[in-house]
Design a protein around this nucleic acid. Structure first.
Length: 215
DNA sequence: GACCAGGCACATC
DNA sequence: GATGTGCATGGT
């Protein structure tokens, strides 16, 4: 008998199918996107990333050499562009200094140690760190976001004041640590949040999870 | 025009 | 330690 976390996953996967996350051409692009997408719509991030791509600037060296002001001007569509230019620069400094600008070198590190290092970078919090670990470096770390919390609350699997790590542990203790599973699961929760919860508000009758226990 | 988005750091009490 | 606030564009 599978637990509730697998039951939710199965429902979502049957309903939506594979989500093909993270939409990016390289691990470096994933990390840039992870920082730029903070509290922002993904379509805005695509515009900013395209601004960088079409100028052939999407590399650690090139972005690091840009002035903060120039970088900010290229990422305007993401909103919070000044603070995100600063955050991106903080991360690039960390990547260049610690790993010679090489994402693959980063992925050789112990996962939890690397997570601590990422969290120590100003501008990288738990969700951004975990997105980088899972989607750029293929580490089996579960990503928790606002949708995840909202959906779990709705199904009474967490309490209102449960924090990030508590929610993350709930997934990681109830699921096998498989990168593919964690990847698809978080993407599916975001898809559900965007497409059903947000658009239909209280009309949960169209939710693919609506006949599961505890909802 | 209001509300929200694939957050985070910092100030203040 | 909890609670509040600034950061800002673009879609619905």
């Amino acid at each position: 008998m599978k637990n509730a976390f697998y039951a939710i996953f199965d429902r979502l996967y049957s309903f939506f199918g594979p989500q093909h996350w993270w939409p990016a051409d390289s691990p470096f692009e994933v990390t840039v996107g992870a920082i730029l997408t903070q509290n922002t719509n993904w379509s805005n991030v695509e515009k900013a990333i395209n601004n960088l791509k079409k100028r052939n600037l999407l590399s650690a060296d090139k972005l690091h050499r840009l002035s903060k002001e120039r970088l900010a001007s290229l990422i305007v569509p993401v909103g919070y562009y000044n603070i995100k230019a600063k955050r991106l620069k903080e991360f690039l400094g960390f990547l260049l200094k610690g790993y010679q600008g090489n994402i693959k070198k980063m992925s050789l590190m112990d996962t939890l140690l690397l997570r601590q290092q990422l969290l120590a970078v100003n501008g990288i919090g738990p969700e951004t760190a975990d997105s980088i670990l899972l989607y750029a470096l293929n580490k089996p770390i579960f990503v928790v976001d606002a949708y995840t919390k909202r959906i779990l609350l709705r199904h009474r699997l967490i309490k209102e004041n449960d924090d990030y790590v508590q929610i993350q542990n709930l997934f990681m203790q109830n699921l096998k640590p498989e990168v593919k599973l964690f990847n698809e699961y978080h993407a599916l929760l975001v898809r559900l949040g965007k497409e059903i919860c947000l658009k239909n508000r209280t009309k949960c009758d169209v939710c693919p999870l609506n006949s599961l226990k505890n909802n």
